[in-house]
Structure formats: C-alpha cells, structure tokens
Design a protein around this nucleic acid. Sequence first.
DNA 1: GCCGGTATCGCAACAGGTTGCATTTGTCTG
DNA 2: CAGACAAATGCAACCTGTTGCGATACCGGC
Lengths: 155, 155
Amino acid sequence: MRATGSPHAPPDAEWAGVRDRLRARGLRWTPQRRTLIEVLSRSDGHVTGAELVARCRALDPGTIPSTVYRTLDVLEELGLLSHSHAADGREEFHVLPSAVHGHLHCISCGTTWEIEADEAAALIASLERRRDFAVDVSHLSIAGRCADCSAALDA
Amino acid sequence: MRATGSPHAPPDAEWAGVRDRLRARGLRWTPQRRTLIEVLSRSDGHVTGAELVARCRALDPGTIPSTVYRTLDVLEELGLLSHSHAADGREEFHVLPSAVHGHLHCISCGTTWEIEADEAAALIASLERRRDFAVDVSHLSIAGRCADCSAALDA
DNA sequence: GCCGGTATCGCAACAGGTTGCATTTGTCTG
DNA sequence: CAGACAAATGCAACCTGTTGCGATACCGGC
C-alpha cells in the first residue's frame, strides 16, 4: 500500500526521474542517494530526519547521518521534499508535496495535520501587503491544541 | 538604555516580584536563578537559548546549560517568558511579552519581527472554526523573505 | 538557630543536526 | 578505456538542547 501522490505526476515516475534530474544539474547519482530515494519512495506523509536516517540504516548499515541530511537538502532544492519544524523544533520532512501547504501540530498529542495554502491565504496576503513579506508556506508550522486534547483537558 | 515593557507593569517591578512568585508556588530562589533573572532583566526582545547561556556565563563562569534551560522552562510557566523556534529550529525566547504575539523570520538575513495577534486573527479564527484547533500564537513562527532581501535577490 | 523534606543543581550521557576537511568516486572528455 | 576535475562521502568535532540521577542547599517549621 502506497500513497498515490499528486494526480498529475505519479510518484514512481517522479522518483525514477531523479537520477536524470540530478545529472542534468551536474549532480551525481550515488549508492547513498539511491538508498535514500528508496526509503523516500516508500515513505508517506511526514517523517522526521532521525526517522529517515534510521530507515536508511536498515537498508544500508553503513549510512552516515551527515550524508543523509546533505542529500535531503539537495532533494529539497529539486522540489521533491519540503521540510518544516515540529512544535519542539525537530525537523519534519514532507515527501512529494503535491501542493504547497503548511502544518498544524498539536502540542499535547503530537499529531500533525496539513493546512492548505488557501486556508492561510488571508494571513499571507495581509503580511505581503502590510509588510511586503513573502511567506514560505511550506515551512509554516502552527502549534496549538487539537479538539480532542482540548476536550480531554476539560474533563 | 532599557526597554520599558508593558505600560501596566514596569519590568523592574516584574523582576523584583519573581522571588516571591516562585516561593508562593513552593519553588526556590537560588543563586543560579538570580543570575538568569539578572541577565533577562537586561535583555530586550528576542534572545536564543545559547545566547542566554553565554550571558549567564559572563556573570557566573560556573553556569551549567541544563540549569539555565530548566529555569527558562519555569519562568515560562510563570508567564515571564515565551519561546518559539526560529526558521532553523533554534529556540528563541521573548522576554516579558507585554502582549501575546507571534514572529516573522527572514530566512535570508535572519531578522525577526513581531506580529500582533490581530494580524493573524483571521487565520486563528478560521482554524478554530473549521478544525476546532486552538492556536498557540506565542509559539507561532512564520518563515519567509523580507522586503529588503527580496529586492536584493532581484538585483 | 537547627532540621528535615524536597526542589534544584551539577554532571555525564545522550539526541538531533551541522560543519570543515581530507579522501574517494561519479561522470564527462578525448 | 584512461585521465582529470569536481561533487560527495566519511569522519570527527562541534552546537543546541534534553534527560536521569546522586549530591547539594533552600526554606518552612519547630
């Protein structure tokens, strides 16, 4: 069972093209990158950096963290990934973002939800207009308490 | 030169009362906490955790980081501080928040600005209504590019 | 002014990430 | 297919915080 990703570009095609996309930019296709791509293509939704390192190590015990993090940076530049920070500041990666979106984090239960760009459109427009500030929506991370946790707290 | 803080409660009065506020809760007034309060009373605006540790060490070279961070947690519970995360995930503390507010971080130059709660009111109300999610505005941190950096990038 | 309970401290180990640098290795060219 | 250049890797050290635990020292009560 795998996420289907964006309707326009099937994920497998995306991943299959990575090699050539890298080369086209003068970047290289290495075993370490292959391993990470393999992990990512099986991942869905939100994953922390540490989690990705762990999964790479499962495929290749020789995996070095700094290599993984550097490769993640590269893939983010290619647009295959976006990252934000969870409520505690840890990195959270989002694979194959089919649409630009931000995240909602519950500080009680730790669950994450996506928020679509249009949901934050008013805020973004206001900041753009009043401060000439270009918001990076994909990095937007909002902390708070979800409905369930609020209810539990009242009880 | 020192920030004047909230109009209702002059900062010095706030800091002077900390000792009693701690004791009233069964907490203690220790030399280490005194040092940190001293540092905070001279700080204005946004400070990173590491910066606070460094300033404490300047007053007392024997300062231990974990003690500082634990004390910061305590002071945050008392409402004397709030913290959020900069665009890179590092902790950023805001001293004596006179009003609940979020932050704007430029990913290019690293500058931070405050945004008032009413500026994000539409977003907050919308999340509250549509998702029953209670946003923690003081923890809200928005990354993007400021006017100056956008202009510089075009050139 | 001493005493005892417990909040706090200091320390050491850990966790997640980043950085600088010497070495290795993809990849392009001929 | 060999050679050379630059991109990536591996490694080690570092940075910012966090956590567990035994030792210390606040502080309220007698």
